[in-house]
Amino acid sequence: METDAPMSLNTSAKTLPATGSEHSATAPVSIHDMTVAYHRKPVLWDIDLDFPKGKLTGLVGPNGAGKSTLIKAVLDLVPKASGRVTVFGQPYQRQRHLVSYVPQRESVDWDFPVNALDVVTMGVYGKIGWFRPVRKPHRELAMAALERVGMADYARRQISHLSGGQQQRIFLARALVQDAEIYFMDEPFAGVDAATEKAIIHLLHDLRSAGKTVAVVHHDLQTVSDYFDHLIMLNMRVVAAGPTREIFNRENLRKTYGGRLSLLDQAAQAIISQS
């Protein structure tokens, strides 16, 4: 495994003209040489990349490839063994207000006694500041965000009484209400219905037209070329990163998914010929 690593890194470097130690100072998010380990077992090696501004970037890779971990490490939710993250050229810690996060739906207890509006309002807690209670203007902001995801009718509903897709939309609304520049979303399409999937895509396009930068962890290879302009293919290290139509090919898929692609091969073939 470990002897394999440097070699693969070399090959990935070839397909990756965009990465390397040179980072654009204006990139919304740059990850500099980041390694992450859980209990001393590395899960991400030497990640070094830029997220391009105003683009929808997809993060794909097999289970356990470290897609969610990458996002969490960028957001300081898991400790980094090395490396740093800059946002518009400044350290992330100082630019936190520009970054918004949509966690996986399973990460919270949906039985929690709050309604949809309460959850969305959490997005403006940072603006409200310490000790001050939530007031009407904050709720109105949250209501507007709910409107944007088509959930205004459900504002007063307890969150356990919402379907999976609706819960996901609540999370999106919570991110929207922050009015950030950069959005990190962890599997927003997992287990949602067709209507929600369409709504989310619509929203992502809106964000892109507004010049926002969006990074999405995704696991459905079939929709990758439809949804994302930019792609990061990940398997503990960056296998390829670049515009989707340039790097989403069989060769890179094989490198990302390894032997498991035998199963995916036909599907992938179909997708690529289709796009």
Binding site: Q93, Y101, F112, D118, Y125
Partner: peptide, 22 residues
């Protein structure tokens, strides 16, 4: 009471709270 909203956030979604800089 003063920290009501902060506690609510912490109890519901710790990761999000952290990403918000709390």
């Amino acid at each position: 009471v003063l920290l009501f909203k902060e506690f609510r956030l912490l109890c519901f979604d710790e990761a999000f709270a952290k990403s918000q800089g709390w």
